[in-house]
Amino acid sequence: MEKSDCEDKKIRCKSLFIDGTKYRTTLNKKYEKRKPWSKLEKNKIISVIPGTILKIYVTEGQCVKKGDNLIVLEAMKMLNLIKSPLEGIIKSIKLKEGEKVSKGKLMIEIGYT
């Protein structure tokens, strides 16, 4: 009896490496759907909460200093003023006033000077 359940019960097994050892096993949905990690890029302004863009204070090509107003994002009945986290040039604006944004959307990209 050296046959595993992969063959016995005709279960589709895959491989999982742990500490250099390859295990035969099945993977669950959560594991297969996990998102690859990426480093947070400070110059990319991402919506941390879904909501509506009420105001955009900047235009493409404009120079901004750290702390300058960028956008007002209304979410959960709150007006969230989003400020520039660094000094640079507005490289691109990915949305318009009045637009609804979902969580995790790239809103503004700032180029380094």
Partner: peptide
């Protein structure tokens, strides 16, 4: 005694 494969890398229920 017939459920668990000897090879620790092989699965079983």
């Amino acid at each position: 005694s017939e459920i668990v494969p000897g090879d620790p890398r092989q699965p079983y229920d």
